[in-house]
Structures are given as C-alpha cells and as structure tokens.
C-alpha cells in the first residue's frame, strides 16, 4: 500500500493494520525516517519536502511491486509525507510483512534504498534563515546499486 500525504501518521496504528488478521505473517519489519537537524542544535528551523504528484505515486507503486516480486512477502507499506516539516517530525515509513524475518528485513532495506534514489521528492532546508536544496548523496546511489545484481535470498 502506498500513501503520499501531508498529514502525520501513527506508526502503531499503521503497523497493526498491516498484519491484522493475517495469520501467516510472523514478521513485520519497518523503518521510519525523521527530520534531522543536520547543522547542529537549533540550526535547522524546517524542512520542506516537494514532490512530483502523480509520478511519486507511480514510482512508489513500482517499488512496492518490485519488492513483492523479489521476496516472499505478504504486504508492503510505504507512507511518505510532503510539505513543510519541523525537526523531529516523521517523514517516511516503510514496512514489509512476511512469514519469516529475513525477507521482511531485506525488503524493508531495499524499499528505503530504492526510494531514496527513485521517488521524486526534494528536500529544502531552512538553516539560520536561509533556504537551500539538499544535494543528492553518492552513498545513497551506492546503497541502491547493491540491489541491482543482488536477488533475494530465500
């Protein structure tokens, strides 16, 4: 399931719903990303996430389908917020459920690595009253690249 939204989310409610009534599920792995003050205590006043409506949903749906094809999963959840967020605010939640933990752990890491390099979001940081766009990181590219030739481990 994909949700692209301005509103906050409740991780407990979301994860409970994911495995509700699914007796074959023995593992729920999740990752939650928060707005971090990169510039030291009190320096970051806000972070605005811009996205490309339509393409974002399309890319995340492809990501979900890819994870479901690669691992023996029951369900996948990706929630990503947009708009102006404050330090400590929740940005993203990825979760995968499966019979066993290995598939759930791996799929969750895959979802985040690919999301970071494929989902059309851009971060604008406000630091000391100045706004600047966050530059893409090479190590995010490297983390995503490891899944290119790396098929699932059963």
């Amino acid at each position: 399931m994909i949700k692209v939204q301005r509103e906050d989310f409740d991780i407990g409610v979301e994860l409970a719903a994911l495995s509700q009534g699914r007796d074959n599920v023995g593992a729920v792995a999740s990752f939650m990303g928060l707005v971090r003050d990169v510039a030291g205590p009190g320096a970051l006043s806000a972070m605005t996430l811009e996205h490309y409506p339509g393409m974002t949903e399309r890319q995340l749906e492809q990501l979900e389908a890819e994870a479901l094809a690669r691992w023996p999963l029951d369900r996948v959840l990706i929630i990503h917020r947009h708009g102006r967020l404050l330090p400590g605010d929740r940005i993203v939640l990825c979760a995968a459920t499966s019979s066993h933990r290995e598939a759930a752990f791996e799929a969750c890491a895959f979802l985040m690595d690919w999301l970071k390099t494929k989902a059309p979001f851009w971060k604008l940081e406000e630091i000391d009253g100045k706004s600047s766009w966050v530059a893409a990181r090479q190590d995010d590219e490297d983390a995503a690249a490891r899944w290119q030739n790396n098929n699932q481990s059963e």
Partner: peptide, 10 residues
C-alpha cells in the same frame, strides 16, 4: 516532460 535535480526524499 519533467526536469528536476537528483531526488533527495526518504
């Protein structure tokens, strides 16, 4: 057709 910088979500 859309143009944009390398993405920085997540």
């Amino acid at each position: 057709v859309a143009f944009f910088p390398p993405v920085t979500g997540g």
